[in-house]
Nucleic acid binder design. Structure first.
Lengths: 229, 229
DNA sequence: TATACTATTATGTCTGCACATAATATCAGA
DNA sequence: TCTGATATTATGTGCAGACATAATAGTATA
């Protein structure tokens, strides 16, 4: 190596932590000392340590210094993509069917999660995503009709998810993962027996001023969500 | 604001993307132009854009420039903590029971995942984590006996997970989340009916030279894993 | 026409310096 | 001994300049 890059330093710091040269909870040398040792600028060490702090390996505080995380809260990152890309990423052919699209009163469960008016009427979309022709995800979505204007999309040909990411700007959202026994509608759509354990993802999405959508995705049995790296 | 900080710039860039001033797929101005516009150094703009690229909002390539991600692969981060901290983080009292700890041949499913010898004998631990005295997670763990030396821990008093993070250095690991119908043992431990849908986390962990452990965590019904921020 | 070489360009990284900020340590005074 | 002001210190951030690198565009040659 010609000169130490911030990645070299990150690797070396990780090595020392793994080799238990720097034990969990211990304070490691200051940026200045490390910069001196590695023969580089402090900013370079800083970059390396910042990245490691970002992934939960180190904890940093001004004046107090940098220490090896005692309980490495591993920040697992998940790549949440559009369903089509998820299917295609597995080398399978993506398919999509819109089952139902009606305007109807939003159920209480969704009302409370998004904090909207009791008697609001939203677009209720039920659809099925296929991988190689086999049911992959059953989607149950409530969509704020106020956001779906401009040229009104045809949700029979493009999935709501896909249309939303390119046409509506969101400000924040959260995702929850859980498990549930297949309900009647889901079991039928996915072609599985009632009560089969399904992996569930629920997402709430808000725009700058108003809620956009709530969706429940029920994955076909056998689905596994993996951490990236 | 006195002068533009990289966080100011990150916010402003996000605003422009949300306001659709910069559309998905479009190339945004170069760092130099933006630095000029915001009246700061290029490094400052660079930092802001790098962070946004890291969270999947932007895509950057040398020479080609920076563009708004067409399919914002939202990188959801999950905080994977030790079970005790997860329970205590909810303000509940943590409890732990070791059910079984025996040395026995590793089953094929685990052998193939960790890539170890067919007839290896590992420590098989079955335990239950409680929250406020109620079953929270049923743990089924296979542990490489080679890593558990030094002062041999008493897994009846400290959970394997907790002992491992402070005593064994791991190099890499992966996690998979899924759903499964409760098996006989799990149903009994968690006090639920057979077939109840359970949220499952499976983790493989390797050290620098050898595999360390494989664990299957079956969460009690109602468990939801939430994305951080 | 196809291919190899040569700018050109935008991002990626490093340096050395400066000042800001937050947390801690120290010490004077009541 | 407690309290509050002050000094110290490690990280956080910013700047200007330099060179590295990857990808593209353009040019010259076979």
């Amino acid at each position: 190596m010609t000169r130490a890059s911030w990645e070299d330093i990150r690797t070396e710091v990780m090595r020392r932590i793994r080799m238990r040269q720097w034990m969990p909870g211990a304070v490691i040398p200051t940026e200045e000392i490390l910069a001196n040792e590695f023969g580089c600028a402090r900013a370079t060490v800083s970059r390396a340590l910042r990245e490691l702090a970002g992934s939960g390996v180190l904890e940093r505080r001004r004046k107090a210094g940098t220490r090896v995380a005692l309980h490495p809260v591993r920040k697992a990152t998940l790549d949440i993509a559009v369903t089509r890309l998820e299917v295609e990423g597995r080398g399978q052919v993506y398919g999509y069917h819109l089952i139902k699209a009606v305007l109807s009163p939003v159920p209480m469960a969704v009302v409370s999660k998004l904090g909207i008016a009791q008697r609001a009427e939203w677009l209720h979309l039920t659809s099925l995503h296929l991988a190689d022709g086999v049911p992959f995800v059953a989607e149950d979505r409530w969509l704020n009709p106020a956001v779906v204007f401009d040229p009104a999309p045809d949700f029979a040909t493009i999935s709501a998810n896909e249309w939303l990411v390119t046409h509506v700007s969101y400000a924040r959202g959260d995702i929850a993962f859980s498990a549930a026994n297949a309900r009647e509608g889901e079991a039928e759509m996915l072609g599985v027996g009632m009560g089969t354990a399904l992996f569930i993802a629920e997402r709430c999405t808000w725009g700058e001023v108003e809620p956009i959508t709530w969706v429940r995705l029920a994955y076909a049995p056998g689905y596994r969500m993996l951490t990236a790296v």
